[in-house]
Design a protein around this nucleic acid. Structure first.
Length: 340
DNA sequence: GGCCCTCTTTAGGGCCTT
C-alpha cells in the first residue's frame, strides 16, 4: 500500500518497469491528500505594492496592505515560513529582469535552448533523474482568449506529491474590467480590489511557491489542458509583461496532446471531444467546486492526468519526453512570424 | 494559435483554452 509520504523518486528507483501504475497511484494519493484536507490558509503580507484601479493605471504610491493567497495540504514547506523574503524582493524592486538579454540575445537564447534540451534528454535517458521531477498541475482563468490583450485573473496549482501547501490558488487583479464572468463566475468586483495581488506582485510569490515544492537541484513539470496553445503562452506573455522570465528548469506537458494521442491510438474509447469536461465525464470524475474555476479544473485535471498516463502507459520519463519548454513556444511563434 | 482530421499535403475547417 503506497502512502502519500512515499516519494515518486523512490517508486521510480525501486522498479522503473511499473512506473505506469505507480504514477497513477501517486497522482491519486496526491489528489486525495490535497482534496481531503481542510488545509490552511496562508496570507502573505506585502509591505509594498502598487495600488491600482479599474482603469489599470498605476499609482506610484507604495501602500501597506494585506494580500492573500491560499494554500492547502499537510506537510510543512518553507513557503509559509519565509514571507519576509517575498517582501524583501518586492521592497527592493529586485525583479529578475532579463537585462542580460540586451547584451547578446541570440547567444543567450541558443544557450538556453541547449540547456532546455539537455534537461529533457537527460531525464529521458537517465530514469534516476526522474526522481528530481516535481509534477504540478495548473490552470488559469483570464479575461479572454487573447494573450496579447487579455489578463490572468485567477491561477491555481497543485503539486501531485501532496502534503501541506500542495495547492496554491489566488485571484489576480487585472486592473481592468472583467468582460466574461459568465465563463468562470469571476467578476470585476471580485478581482479589482486592493487585497487582490496584481500579476507583477504575484510572480515572485508564484516563483517562490514552485521553488518551495522543487527538490534540490530538481526540475518542475507543469501540466495544463491545452497548455501548449493557451496557458503556457499566456503565462509567458504575462511574465514578459512584468519583466520576468519563465525559469529554465520548468518543463510543460499538455494533457490535450495526451488525450489526442490516446484517442488516435485506439487503446481507449475516448469521446470525439477532448475538452476537460468531456474527459472528466468520460472518466467519471466528480466535479469538485465550480467548473471553470481554476482550482476546480486543476483537481479534475489531476485525476484526468492520472487516467491518461495509465492508459498511455506513461511514467515520469515518458511524460518528460513529451514535454515542451517556454522557449519552444517562443521559437514556434518566431518561426510563424518569419514564415508569415 | 497549435494540432488534428480529411472530402488532404498546391487546404480548410474544427477543436480547445477564457
Amino acid at each position: 500500500m503506497r502512502t502519500v509520504s512515499m516519494s515518486l523518486s523512490n517508486l521510480i528507483l525501486v522498479a522503473p518497469r511499473d512506473g505506469i501504475r505507480w504514477l497513477a497511484n501517486f497522482c491519486w494519493e496526491g489528489f486525495r491528500g490535497a482534496s481531503g484536507s481542510h488545509g490552511s490558509n496562508s496570507s502573505f503580507r506585502l509591505l509594498c505594492s502598487k495600488s491600482s484601479g479599474l482603469e489599470g493605471g498605476y499609482s506610484r504610491r507604495w501602500t501597506r496592505r494585506h494580500m492573500s493567497t491560499k494554500t492547502e495540504g499537510r506537510n510543512k514547506t518553507n513557503l509559509s515560513s519565509k514571507p519576509g523574503s517575498i517582501v524583501h524582493e518586492i521592497l527592493d524592486g529586485k525583479l529578475p529582469q532579463s537585462a542580460a538579454l540586451n547584451v547578446n540575445k541570440t547567444e543567450i537564447i541558443e544557450t538556453q535552448k541547449t540547456r532546455y534540451c539537455d534537461i529533457q534528454q537527460k531525464i529521458v535517458e537517465n530514469k534516476d533523474l526522474a526522481s528530481l521531477v516535481t509534477t504540478i498541475v495548473f490552470d488559469i482563468e483570464t479575461t479572454g482568449l487573447s494573450r496579447e490583450e487579455e489578463r490572468i485573473i485567477e491561477i491555481a496549482l497543485q503539486d501531485l506529491a501532496g502534503g501541506e501547501n500542495s495547492t496554491f490558488q489566488t485571484l489576480v487583479n487585472p486592473g481592468r474590467y472583467v468582460p466574461n464572468p459568465h465563463v468562470h463566475g469571476i467578476t470585476t468586483h471580485m478581482v479589482c480590489r486592493p487585497n487582490v495581488p496584481r500579476m507583477e506582485e504575484l510572480i515572485p510569490i508564484l516563483l517562490q511557491y514552485v521553488s518551495s515544492r522543487q527538490k534540490p537541484g530538481g526540475y518542475v513539470m507543469l501540466v495544463a489542458h491545452n497548455g501548449r496553445c493557451f496557458d503556457v503562452p499566456f503565462l509567458i506573455s504575462e511574465f514578459n509583461r512584468c519583466s520576468y522570465e519563465i525559469p529554465q528548469n520548468w518543463l510543460f506537458v499538455d494533457t490535450l496532446s495526451l488525450a489526442r494521442e490516446l484517442k488516435k491510438s485506439g487503446v481507449s474509447r475516448l469521446p470525439s471531444k477532448t475538452s476537460l469536461q468531456a474527459l472528466r465525464e468520460y472518466y467519471n470524475i466528480p466535479l469538485v467546486g465550480s467548473a471553470h474555476r481554476a482550482m476546480s479544473d486543476v483537481r479534475s485535471l489531476s485525476m484526468i492526468l492520472q487516467r491518461l498516463t495509465f492508459d498511455l502507459k506513461l511514467s515520469i520519463p515518458g511524460l518528460v519526453g513529451k514535454s515542451f519548454t517556454a522557449l519552444d513556444c517562443i521559437n514556434s511563434k518566431k518561426k510563424k512570424k518569419n514564415s508569415g
